[in-house]
Design a protein around this nucleic acid. Structure first.
Lengths: 330, 330
DNA sequence: CGATATCTTGACATCGATACCATAATGCGT
DNA sequence: ACGCATTATGGTATCGATGTCAAGATATCG
């Protein structure tokens, strides 16, 4: 069965000729303008359909001075060593796509490193993860495009930020520790990372209110092995004094649990461990991980809504998403 | 510190005026054409830089009849129930972004459901997961744009497909079972899914060569609980005869291990379990999961390269990526 | 029936970048 | 010093869709 030849690209003028009307009428008909007689519109739509006409977006964008596109910039190096492996971009992306598409916007995905080409072609920018690359953020800010960032919400930040209430996540973890009667706690995570810093801050400040002690904090990448090693380090320093661990991420928490198990500490009897994110594997890890859940999908949708609002010229404010303590068996 | 006013959008004509040359010269200078005197180019580039000029992509695209954009269509419903949760799109995306950006292409992300607007604005399409929506694939095919699909590679497929050598993955699993002396095996996965069907086919055919028996196959979603339940079902049917399980996915494999543990079967002494994907948690699950690794990042890059080739009018062929058995303790 | 309101349609110009061709400026040889 | 080759620059038209204004067609009213 021979495939139909791909037709040369049709323009509105072609459709106009076929339908015996002017190009403008075609434009209006396809845009659903009320100014076109129903009968005419239907004819035009049918003809366009049959001819396989597809609107040239570039032309429309040029005319409208608007691309209906938002760039989503993911903070990742395009090295193969760490390729967007953090789970969060994906879940956020899902939410963003949902919201953008219902506003008829398109999502252009790039990384900090590959963002070069995009700015001339987008109406706004969503940046996932302000992390530590503040210089890069500054570069993007300088573009003067509507910008919304996922990360740590700070009152003084110069751009709109959407993020989880990391501080409250820390508070929830501290209160859980209190409930379990834990008094000698440690924190695993790199407080150079703004979101982690907030988790740490919430955790420690509430801890002190609760009359517990923070024995130590070890900076730590978001990975199982990093968590494992960091926990070992803490065990070396503090031995069996530790009765509770709050990790800035589930993978770290699981690594810590492994390290604790290796020296014979029982979870949660001897040491309680709380993670962050409620990643997929948290629920079926052994022991099932108690963790602070972030609502990624909703976060993505909120990001997109703020970005769209900013593009419309509406005022958008930073906003924190509530987090939720998921109690399991760690 | 007052932020600089966002300047009205500058055009090449503006830069030309500032530099005392014609717009065409500006165009050439910024494009790095050899026809412009070095001195002139540098002056123009500097002026453009200082003025914060940004090229209008829409205009260029219109002129070039080319958007330098590829649509990546992810097979996911925008429902919040299952939002791009499969891990693979992300790793593939990483590879795709890498390759596209080095070819100066942009990635437009959409879902099957939200793809409506894109076709008029892209030069080619990468479809992730042909899955079961063959009707949707047909729709996209009809657009007549260069199309590359991630999925099961079949000799008869009408479009270019890149995918893992799923059949070989099954063979590797079967050989591993043979090595462990397992003779009564089961398969967990939905063979309606083309890639899973290939894994199943490779597994069972090699199994028979090896003199082992396939006791049963249970269709199963890609999730822990589905794997758990499917395994229970098989245990009900075949009791303790089963000495090996091949799951079409790591989450399923982990669920199966849980179900086996619940009835007191030891892994891997009583039952060997092999998963598929080598997901992040496979390595720190207990027991660490033996699994078939797919090379997502490379796959993404290959997808992008094929798509770019097809856009250049070059001939592209379907291709299978090698897979790798990662032996751990299950 | 004429005039005004309403409905439909079209002509023209425009968004910004750039290919094509033409022209101006420079270099070189004899 | 002249002509030709080469280099550097500009004028004009064009990609396709659509906003603005105007005009033609039809309906409605007294």
């Amino acid at each position: 069965m021979p495939k139909a030849k791909m037709p040369a690209n049709l323009t509105m003028a072609d459709i106009a000729r076929l339908a015996g009307v002017s190009p403008i009428t075609v434009s209006r008909a396809l845009a659903g303008s009320a100014a076109v007689r129903d009968e005419t519109r239907q004819k035009i739509v049918r003809i366009a359909e049959e001819a396989g006409y597809r609107l040239n977006q570039a032309a429309r964008n040029l005319r409208h001075q608007r691309s209906n596109t938002i760039a989503v910039v993911v903070e990742m190096t395009p090295s193969s060593t760490r390729p967007m492996s953090e789970p969060y971009p994906l879940a956020l992306l899902g939410g963003i796509v949902q919201e953008l598409s219902s506003a008829n916007f398109t999502l252009s995905l790039s990384t900090l490193a590959t963002f070069a080409a995009a700015p001339g072609a987008v109406d706004g920018i969503i940046l996932l993860g302000q992390g530590m690359h503040n210089d890069a953020v500054a570069d993007i800010e300088r573009l003067g495009l509507p910008l919304v960032v996922w990360g740590a919400v700070r009152p003084d930040s110069r751009h709109v930020v959407v993020g989880s209430d990391n501080r409250d996540g820390g508070v929830l973890a501290a209160d859980r520790m209190e409930l379990l009667g834990r008094k000698r706690l440690v924190f695993l995570g790199d407080t150079e990372h703004a979101e982690v810093a907030d988790r740490h801050e919430g955790f420690t400040s509430r801890l002190l209110d609760n009359g517990a002690t923070l024995l130590g904090t070890v900076p730590c990448e978001f990975s199982f092995v990093a968590g494992h090693d960091a926990m070992q380090e803490l065990l070396n320093q503090h031995g069996n004094q530790i009765d509770g661990v709050f990790a800035s991420n589930d993978a770290i928490a699981m690594g810590a649990i492994r390290a604790l198990a290796e020296v014979g500490r029982r979870i949660p009897r001897d040491v309680a461990v709380i993670g962050f994110d409620d990643s997929q594997s948290a629920s079926f890890f052994v022991p099932a991980l108690t963790t602070v859940r972030q609502h990624w999908n909703e976060g993505g949708r909120l990001l997109a809504r703020k970005a769209l609002a900013a593009i419309q010229g509406e005022h958008a404010e930073s906003e924190e998403m509530p987090v939720e303590l998921i109690v399991r068996s760690s």
